[in-house]
């Protein structure tokens, strides 16, 4: 990371640095940090867009109201399912794909280009694609399952709570496998060839090489990728928003879609409270995750 020549700091250089950074800092401060701070303060205010005559500070009232709302708890449980299952499947399938794409073959570049394309799409569009495919009446998935004899009659995938969650997760997995495949491929390529050669000389089989050479070597990278991905999936209401809108009856609501509903509803006080709760949970989780993976690594 270090750059060899960091010149000494003179007033002229300080001015140059300041001028170069000013636009970026100004934008982020005004349009990201300022509203974030304001939103956090609103969490402790009564702040409803449709009645702004009074915005008194009300202590923890918003938090109490949110925590008393069954839909928040449903959203929280759903978030666990949404993040956990999506992540596990994305990771496993992505790992498999990375292993298959690891060695060069003819047409690999082209293949990667094709399987890469969901990335160019927004979560919103992906939600729409799958909403249409999972359509209870004219959806192609129902049609294919009927043809294959897996089901006898059409399923209202997006209208049945359990199925709706399954459906949005399938769409999300479809979207995210490529990401893992690419990251894991890069990690695999970072393993020095000599390690495999040494292991081969020692007579280790391919499977043993994988467990004892590959996996330990790429573990720190995987740990980080997984954490970033967890945060990312949690922050990703777009697909659910366009696919089910959180429905049926909150069956696919996650904390971020719930948060957006509070904003749309104009209750910025509650939205702030939900935002801070989510942030707190995320931080707690990140610290827990990093502690567990760290101690796991040092104990090896």
């Amino acid at each position: 990371m270090s750059v060899s020549a960091r010149p000494a700091f003179t007033p002229r250089k300080a001015l140059f640095v300041a001028l170069c950074l000013l636009p970026g800092v100004a934008f982020v401060a005004l349009f990201t940090y300022w509203p974030m701070v304001r939103g956090s303060v609103m969490a402790f205010q009564r702040y409803n867009l449709f009645d702004l005559t009074e915005t008194p500070f009300v202590g923890l009232e918003n938090f109490r109201a949110v925590l008393a709302e069954p839909r928040f708890w449903t959203a929280l449980r759903n978030t666990g399912t949404w993040v956990g299952v999506s992540l596990a499947l994305q990771f496993l399938l992505g790992f498999g794909l990375a292993l298959l794409l690891r060695r060069h073959f003819r047409g690999r570049g082209l293949y990667q280009a094709w399987v890469f394309f969901p990335w160019a799409m927004s979560g919103f569009l992906i939600g729409l694609l799958w909403r249409w495919m999972f359509n209870g009446q004219f959806g192609v998935i129902n049609d294919l399952l009927l043809k294959a004899g897996v089901i006898e009659e059409r399923i209202g995938f997006l209208a049945t709570p359990g199925w709706a969650m399954t459906s949005v997760i399938i769409a999300n997995v479809w979207y995210g496998v490529t990401f893992f495949a690419i990251m894991i491929m890069a990690a695999l390529q970072s393993v020095p060839r000599e390690l495999y050669e040494a292991a081969a000389v020692d007579g280790a089989s391919k499977v043993r090489q994988f467990w004892h050479v590959t996996l330990p070597h790429i573990r720190p990278t995987l740990t980080l990728i997984v954490l970033l991905r967890i945060i990312w999936i949690l922050n990703f209401p777009d697909l659910i928003y366009s696919m089910t809108g959180g429905g049926p009856a909150g069956g696919t609501d996650i904390v971020t879609t719930f948060l957006i509903q509070q904003v749309t509803g104009g209750d910025y006080g509650r939205a702030g409270a939900v935002g801070l709760l989510v942030l707190g949970l995320l931080l707690a989780f990140a610290i827990f995750y990093l502690t567990v993976t760290r101690s796991d690594e040092t104990s090896r």
Partner: peptide, 28 residues
């Protein structure tokens, strides 16, 4: 290319915006 006071903090401030749910800022 430069090291200056606050450089690390600035990088962190930028990275944080990529990690946390920004929807709390939507209303404000």
């Amino acid at each position: 290319r430069f090291s200056f006071p606050g450089r690390g903090a600035l990088m962190l401030a930028f990275l944080v915006t990529q990690m946390i749910p920004l929807f709390i800022a939507l209303g404000p």
